[in-house]
Design a protein around this nucleic acid. Sequence first.
DNA 1: CAAAATATGGAGACAGTTTCCGTTTGTCAA
DNA 2: TTGACAAACGGAAACTGTCTCCATATTTTG
Lengths: 187, 187
Amino acid sequence: MTTGKPLRADARRNRDALLAKARELFAGGCFDMRFDDFAKLAGVGTGTLYRHFPTREALAEAVYREELTAMCAHGRELQATLPAADALAVFLRGFVTHLDTHQGLARTLATLMASRTGTLAEGGRELGQVIADLLAGGVQEGAIRDDIGVGAVMMALQGICVACGEPGSRADADGTITLVLDGLRHR
Amino acid sequence: MTTGKPLRADARRNRDALLAKARELFAGGCFDMRFDDFAKLAGVGTGTLYRHFPTREALAEAVYREELTAMCAHGRELQATLPAADALAVFLRGFVTHLDTHQGLARTLATLMASRTGTLAEGGRELGQVIADLLAGGVQEGAIRDDIGVGAVMMALQGICVACGEPGSRADADGTITLVLDGLRHR
DNA sequence: CAAAATATGGAGACAGTTTCCGTTTGTCAA
DNA sequence: TTGACAAACGGAAACTGTCTCCATATTTTG
C-alpha cells in the first residue's frame, strides 16, 4: 500500500522537498502553520501540496512513518530478546522518553490514535499491534493478567501523547506508565 | 470571578437562551455546528453570541460547569463517607460511566484539560483538586502508594476523555481505570 | 522528436469566524 | 412618567484559512 505506482521524477522531487521542509519545521516546534504558506515555504504550489498530502495528518503521518516503524521494530526486537513482560516495560519506558524529546511524534500519534478510520490510522494500528503482541506474550508467560485488552493501554498512551509537551509532563507520563505496568502485573 | 457585574435583564435572557440551546444540542450529540448558525438557532445575533461566549470552549465550559461542579461535590461526599481508596475507586468508576453517556462532557473535559492556561481550565483544575485530595487521603491511610502524583492519573483520564465515543471505548475505559486503581494500590 | 501521460502552480471560489457600528432596549434619577 | 445615558443587540461586511480547478509545463515513451 506504500508503493502503488512509480511516480514521476519531478513529482518525487517535490514530495521530498515537502517532507524535508515539514521535518525541519516540526523539529523546530512549528506545527500549526498555515497550510498554504507551508507550500510556499517548501517552494511548491498549493495544488502540488494538496495532491501529495490531502490533509495535515497525511503529511504528519508521512513525516513520522519511518520513525514509528523504527519504534515498532525496536519493540519486536525487545520481544525476541526479553521475557515479554520485561520487554513491554522497557518498550513503554523508552516510548515515553522518545515522545518527550520528539513533540511532533507525540502530536502525530495523538491524532492518529484518535482517528481510527482510514488509511491514516495505519501507523497507529501498527503500534497497537506491537503492544498487543507484547501483552499476549506476557499473558502466556503468566506475568501479565489476561483480563485487560490493548485498548486500555492505548488509551493511557493516548493521554500521554495529548498531554505531552506541557511543562512537567515528563514526570507525570512516567507515573502513568508505572501505573499501567504495575496494574498489568498478574497478582 | 463568576460574578463581576449585575448584567442587564435582556443580556441575561439572551445568555440563558444560548446556554439552553447549547445544552439541547450537546445532549443531541451535535457538537461541531457552525457557530454562526448556532446563534440564529438560539434566536440571537452573531454579535451577541460572541459577546457572551468568545469561543466554543467558553460556551462548552459554561454549559458543563454545573455538571462538573456536581461531580466534584459527589467526589468530596464520597471522601467523607468511605475510606479514601474506596472513594477514589467509586469516583473514577462513576466518572467513566458518566462520560460514557455524556459525550459532551467528555469532549469538554478533553479540551479543558489540554489547555492548562486561562480561566477556561478552571473546571479542569477543580476536578484535579478533588482527585488529588482523594489520592492524598489514600496515601495517609496507607492504601495508596505515595510515589505517584495526580498528574499521572489525570493523564490517563485525559486519554479516556479523548478516546471516549469510539465504539467499544467503554470497555477499554473501564480497563484503563482498573489499571490505574490496581497500579495505585500500595504493595 | 512528437505524442501521450503526468504533474505543476496559483488564482479564485468557498466556508466559517469575527469585528464593527448604527439601532434598539433597559435603567435610573428627576 | 419621562428623558438621558449606558448597555446590549444584530447582522452586514471584512477577514482568514482551506481547497479546487484548469491552462500551462515537464517527463516519459514509442
